[in-house]
Nucleic acid binder design. Structure first.
Lengths: 250, 250
DNA sequence: CATGCCGTTCAGCTATGGAGAACAAAGGTT
DNA sequence: AACCTTTGTTCTCCATAGCTGAACGGCATG
């Protein structure tokens, strides 16, 4: 039917392509979007005016931008997840005691999503953004609690693309790391996702299902030695355990 | 072209109708959505599978739900607004000192949007949700700083629909309230939006442009007498002024 | 094993939305 | 001021995208 397998309603694909272009762009005009997305001006105009009457886009003299309708959609999905309410307050205190950025990551399809993030803004990770599961401490913490076949399938589907020089690209190495993560309840990321940034993570596991992971991340020079290995690690693990209990008690 | 003026790309309208249905519903099946939205099963299925390959929807054995892609979209629009960063911390302390719920409302087209909200969860207002400008303290605070013609146009377009028995439905009454709001820098809502809930609001005005309003809301029995008239009012106004200064200093 | 009730697939017809050019409006430049 | 450039908007026409309606297959439940 459609030229691209699975995408049968191409108008929807076009509309969302425009929406995503507007996300990065603050505001944009018709011609600008048309050239970037390689569509005709009239097509882009049609979609924009449709999105405008639907309330997802506003225009002020020729420039279009996204409205806050997406905020309602996005927050609704987040609020729905019980892990969010259970973790929020505890992550705040974890951020305060460690002085570093703290993240809450949940798995979604084959990637992780930053559901919540409280930090000093040094590292430009955006809430709602996604992470590769194999190249982040939180992601590996989640993968560690999935079955062997699930991990194999994951590797088959995506491979282990390198994000930095230190990303784990060898399946055997990854599998051995996952084993030790499960044993010790901690995952580490030493610049595997972003050069110069280290991470400690621990998964939230409910009934053998890793529903989330929390992580503390900071620049390599602050996250090393005894501080990383003992202090931070201990805090992350105990916070993860506390969140597990909170989830179970609701 | 289209049957409904302005909505030329109907496929987009259908896709977003499905998305909005999923927002309220946690998860839903094809048939369920098809009957609710009055479309054919195959049409709904087409849209859902398209949205799924685009990454906005996931399915687990026949049930569909929204993904967190919308979180990225929504938070991007919020983070972009400088008023959010300027107001966030101050609203937290305002909530702590008053003990009531605190809201940040920004105007968008002809309604207000709850951009941020910190509260005790008593009143089920959702972040990202929208308010009628004429039937809320924050909305009236914003309207008060718009020109007379702008207010007239607003009334022409929407009228003054009553949300409760106490909603201001008379244009003359509204205009006189707006005048006093501008004079005193405070707007009140005495059950005009939700029966039994009172509100105090003050606008954030930058260069004669009301870019936002903050409000404190609580049940009528706690928000009355001296406490409302003096204590809370004073705190709201001074916080609004502080936010104005913060915005200007950036 | 039969019977609903799902989600998914299919084929075919028709309305829809895209291409492209013409139009309008707004700035910038000389 | 008159020009030109660049933008958003509108128009018409045609191909095809995407609906309808029905058939298929899987999974429960009786």
């Amino acid at each position: 039917m459609g030229k691209d397998a699975g995408v049968s309603v191409q108008a929807t694909a076009t509309s969302f392509a425009i929406v995503e272009a507007l996300r990065t762009r603050e505001q944009a005009g018709v011609t600008e979007l048309a050239t970037e997305l390689d569509r005709s001006k009239s097509a882009v105009h049609n979609h924009l005016s449709t999105l405008e009457t639907l309330g997802y886009v506003t225009s002020t003299d020729g420039k279009y931008r996204l409205t806050h309708r997406f905020l309602r959609l996005g927050l609704a999905t987040r609020e729905r997840n019980p892990i969010y309410a259970a973790a929020k307050a505890k992550l705040r205190t974890l951020a305060r005691t460690t002085g570093e950025s703290v993240n809450l990551v949940v798995p979604e399809d084959d990637h992780g999503v930053y559901l919540y993030r409280v930090g000093n803004g040094e590292h430009p990770i955006e809430e709602g953004g996604s992470v590769a599961l194999h190249a982040s401490a939180a992601g590996k913490a989640i993968l560690a609690y999935r079955g062997h076949e699930a991990v194999d399938d994951f590797i088959d589907r995506h491979g282990l693309p390198a994000l930095t020089e230190r990303t784990v690209t060898d399946p055997a190495t990854l599998r051995s790391q996952l084993r030790s993560i499960r044993d010790r309840r901690v995952a580490f990321d030493r610049g595997e996702q972003t050069e110069g940034w280290q991470c400690v993570a621990s998964a939230i596991v409910i009934e053998d299902d890793p529903i989330a992971a929390i992580s503390v991340s900071g620049p390599a020079d602050r996250m090393q030695g005894k501080r990383l290995e003992e202090d931070t690690t201990g805090l992350v693990v105990s916070t993860a355990k506390a969140i597990e209990l909170e989830v179970l008690s609701d």
